[in-house]
Amino acid sequence: MKRNIIKLINVRIWILAIAACLAVQAASAQVRPPLSFNFNYSIAQPLGSVKDYSDKTSFRGWQAGLQYMLNDQLGVGLKSGFQDFYYRAPRAVYPTKSGDISAVQTRTLQVIPVLATVQYQFTKPDAIVIPYASLGVGVANMNYEKYWGMFVDKDNSWQFMASPEIGINIPFGKASPLLFNASVQYNYSPYKLAEITNFSTVQGNIGLRWHIN
């Protein structure tokens, strides 16, 4: 009788152990659904000629994207966003062809990128912290508005853009579909207009990624 009970317990332990193993295997095969959506708040610092044009860090920006994981570590996606650069230069005299213009200049630039992305995650999806690197390539809408007092010089155009990015995802719980995201990206575009000889900024993002399906 006693032997039988021990035998039964042993069997139960075996079953539990096997079930646990299977569960772990299943979990590592797919910790969270492959399709995810992310939304981030963005801060951007202009560099180079953009800094000369509008020398002020932009705190008005956001970024959103969709991504599909092809396997545990490689994903492809699409991302967009918005960043507003704004700087008001105190009154100064600007030379023209046959004279000068004295003006308070308000120099603005609004950027809306539309980029295809490839992302590689350096750890398996069940890690506590998932560092990654990604590259976005696509186009950006550049809206240039330079105000001379209340009079504006305007230009709106599309231009090529490339954005390498490194960041981390931190899941809220081991298999949670919701992840905290923080990243730093560099944006480059061969955009040329007036005083801007190319577009180059460093951008910090913070937000959430959500695996939806």
């Binding site: 008005r60 920006g61 956001w62 918005f82 004279g99 004295s102 308000t106 603005t108 007092g149």
Partner: peptide, 23 residues
């Protein structure tokens, strides 16, 4: 999201002085 350049502009800031000359 965009900051409006004309929103907080004073009259003085809105003015420009353009000079031209016969070179």
């Amino acid at each position: 999201c965009r900051k409006d350049p004309l929103n907080d502009m004073t009259e003085e800031e809105s003015q420009i002085y353009i000079t031209n000359r016969d070179t």
